[in-house]
Design a protein around this nucleic acid. Sequence first.
DNA 1: ATGTCC
Length: 472
Amino acid sequence: MENKRINGNDLLALGYDENSALGVALQINKKRLGFTREQMLAYFSAVLANPEAYLEDAIFKTLAQELLKQDELEASYIALKEEGHYEIYGEEHIEEGAKQQMQVAMTLPVSVAGALMPDAHQGYGLPIGGVLATSNAVIPYGVGVDIGCRMALSIFDLPAAYLTEHSDALKKVIMQTTKFGAGQGFQKGDRASHAVLEQDTFAMNDLLRSLKDKAWAQLGTSGGGNHFVEFGVIAFEQTDADLGVQAGEYLALLTHSGSRGLGATLADHYTKLAKQLCKLPYKAQHLAYLDLGTAEGQEYWMAMNLAGDYASACHEVIHEKVRQQLGAERLAKVENHHNFAWKEMWNGQELIVHRKGATPAAKGVMGIIPGSMASPGFLVRGKGQMESINSASHGAGRLMSRTKAIKTLAAADLKAILNDQGITLMGAGMDEAPMAYKDIHTVMAAQQDLVDVLATFSPKIVRMADDGSRED
DNA sequence: ATGTCC
């Protein structure tokens, strides 16, 4: 006990802030230097109280310097508010880190309202599953790295039985029409065309001009991680007049992917720009924002919208290729993005609503909330709940990190689940195994006030990027 | 999530 290591929490308890001085203190602590834990803690406390006195100290000099530098910097930062209230759905299943991140986001001077969805987990800056409404400012990390990432569902005029009767053919269709993985794109002769490539925004600046060719090559590709293309059965218990689909079970295609290299590069560029222009205290630095009244803010807005349109085009290319190969007719299509910022009216004012891993759920708005490769997804219609800022979850949410999933989950267990449910899986790593996700039914139960369920989608033939952590 | 360097 006596010699228990000093950690970051001990230093925070002494009054240290979450900044680089804390890091320097931990570096010094690593050396141990023959002091007891109590002696070390006494020193750290004394240096914090009076850094000037330690500027010549052989051991604590670097810490004293860093503390003084932080004091100086702090004075030049944009001040945060004391606190702000935000609504949480399914709180008992949300990790502490995600709540802390949301709390910090609420203290931005531009923040007006916030909400945390039941699938929330810790991210970079704003948590995944976080919704933040700001006044005339956009936060690149409030949108996320994969700008415009979305779900798209096509319901075909084919019966559910088509899946079992033509399973091999459908497998072939997916393999022939999709391309997965970081950096992947199509060779010149195989590239698709789409009106999005003609958008003027591609000529807005050098960065966008330089990204156009890659965007063309990657048009209609799917990326890695949790992105997927899957065939499944969609079941409507009742006829949906709005959508024009009769009660029954149909073959459907569900895809999840985003704006590929284009969006990633734009997100990286504008996040750095925001950090240069908007100096926030250490704990909030990733939430740097761009004022929409500035040229930089407008530029990001244009770029973000282009990336959104591009992500949509990628899905449309895949869906159209598949539809043609099936020789089928599409009865209905539903699409929704979940990494984006919108100008929306909320509580009588126009705000910038950031949804980072959250589904738009304004009254009557349709969306898709997937479970996992081996659990159902849901076609939903928003209820327009003001407290959730017209939002819902974008999936089940992770139960364990990718690394933990790869380390602890057994490939044999996944195989058993897939066999039991008659699901064919192509690609994917163990980090995408259903056991790595929260129970989708629990998550849906936590957002009954936010969405109505129209139909249930059961995945049957799933393709994801192959990361090598699983053998087929 | 991306794809090879602030």
